[in-house]
């Protein structure tokens, strides 16, 4: 399936050891392959970290990272538009709680000053969650939408 028709957004996750220069190695590979990072989140423990990214050319990024010897995986996450005002995120989370959906992780990004912020959610059933949020009046974004922000 081509990225253009996806309801969900593909995220590339990379395993990194917690040591100097490893993140630099990731950005170097992406730079060399002319890949733009749209959103970035890093989860870390004392010994290792997981870098999660939304990029403009997902397949290229996965291939390039693998070739450079990284362990990578693709995860589908849900991108939700929320109002950039106090309580904006809270409203989304309330809907998720009411529907008994737990969040594995979430991170946000803002491309440019605007009325909305974007939150990326990893949940167990992203398609179902997407429907629930749409019904509750929230707007979810496709991969293409994110690329065109």
């Amino acid at each position: 399936m081509k990225g253009e028709n996806r309801v969900l957004v593909r995220q590339i996750s990379v395993f990194l050891e917690n040591k100097k220069g490893r993140l630099l190695e990731v950005t170097k590979v992406l730079k060399e392959h002319d890949i733009d990072i749209t959103a970035l989140s890093i989860a870390d423990t004392t010994s290792f970290g997981i870098v999660r990214m939304i990029v403009d050319k997902h397949e290229d990024a996965v291939e390039a990272m693998r070739k450079s010897g990284f362990t990578v995986s693709t995860t589908e996450v849900l991108a939700v538009k929320v109002s950039d005002r106090p309580g904006g995120l809270h409203e989304v989370l309330e809907v998720l709680k009411d529907n008994d959906i737990s969040i594995e992780y979430a991170y946000s990004f803002v491309r440019q000053p605007s009325e909305n912020a974007l939150i990326l959610f990893k949940v167990e059933d992203p398609l179902k969650t997407s429907d629930i949020l749409k019904k509750a009046g929230f707007h979810t974004l496709k991969e293409e939408d994110i690329r065109n922000l």
């Binding site: 995220q11 996750s13 395993f15 989860a43 870390d44 423990t45 290792f48 997981i50 999660r52 362990t71 990578v72 995986s73 995860t75 594995e104 992780y105 990893k122």
Partner: peptide, 13 residues
Amino acid sequence: VSEKLFSDEVRKL
């Protein structure tokens, strides 16, 4: 950590 072992969730690792 091979790709088979890898998870993007800290908890699982």
